[in-house]
Every structure is written in C-alpha cells, then in structure tokens.
Amino acid sequence: MNINWQHRELNLKVVYYGPALSGKTTNLEQIYKRVNPNQRSELVSLKTHEDRTLFFDFLQLELGKIGGLTPKIHLYTVPGQSYYEASRRLVLRGTDGVVFVVDSSVSRLNDNVAAWKDMYSHLRSFGFDPDKMPIVVQFNKQDLPDALNPLAIKNLLHTNGKPVVNAVAVRGEGVLDTLKLITRAVMTNVQREIA
C-alpha cells in the first residue's frame, strides 16, 4: 500500500491465490475484458510455453474518486502449480488483500486445502496475520457436475467468517462481486493502517 498525497492516490495490491487451474488468471482476464479500457492497464502475463502462469499476471484498475482519493488497485495472480511455491510467496509480498480462488470440483479437494495452508504459511512468513488480512474466498466452477456445495467448502477450509462468493469465472459470474468484496475489505482496512 502506498499513499501519494500530491496526486491524492491510494495504491493497493490484491493477489488472487489458489491451486493450479482454479481460475485465477481467468478472473483477471474477465476483469480486463469487462472494465472500461480507460480505467485499466494492459494485462501483463508471464507465462510458460504451455500458457500456464510462470510468475504472475498483473492488471491495474483505477477507480473513480472515493473520499477525495483515487484508489488504484493492482491485481496479481500467483502460479498455481505446486513446484512454483517460491514464486507464489514472492507475489504475496506487500499485498493488502487476497482473493482465494477455490476449484469447487470434488476431485480438487486436497489441492484446495494444500493451497489454503500454503497461503497461510506464506502470509505468516511476511509477518501478516491471515486472520486479520482481508481475504475473500471465491468458490469457482460452481457449474461443474461434481462441484462441492459452498457449505462443504467452508467447513473444509475453515474460512472463519471470511466473505465468500459463488462463481463461474469463465462466464464472468461472481467476478465483479468478488472484486467488490475484496476492495471493500481492503479499503476498510486502510483506516486501521492510518495512524
């Protein structure tokens, strides 16, 4: 987070985290497609030859003025594959909030739990308290025939009252709601950061 009083800008960082192929990049692609081009940057993607995220995807959104400040939200994704753990940790550095993207398929249950624990551990390694950090949980791929119901996922991950959103990101469903919730949570947290 940084505040620039000269330009009245509030810069915030939000990271989309989750297991491989859960839909993190899809969220950013949908946001990129669906927001006013004058208020977003280009989508930067560092990908492998197989089109999988290698390091991160990045997109900046510029909101209209809120209380005299222009919030600029920097959205990042992490690479989901297990062997990119070191890169995932780096992307979390300096984050102001996290969207955890769950793959709702019952076959990905263990991957979700592993990624959730991994996220907690990395946040703690940076001195963040994951229970105080703004985190929104997106239950993606709710259209799958074997999708777990949201209550089951909540119990599985112990989301502890964190805001949740049902989504089918590939169709854009739940993408804006997720973005609204995390932005609200991060902005609310700003007041605690100001001394």
């Binding site: 669906r34 006013n36 909101l63 809120i66 804006l176 932005t183 609200r184």
Partner: peptide, 15 residues
C-alpha cells in the same frame, strides 16, 4: 464506504 466502492466499481464495469 460500501456504497462508494460499489458505485466506483459499477462505473468501471461495462459488462
């Protein structure tokens, strides 16, 4: 605050 953020993101979103 919630309304302001909601409005700002709705304005951004062209669907």
């Amino acid at each position: 605050l919630s309304d302001l953020i909601g409005d700002a993101l709705d304005d951004l979103w062209i669907g």
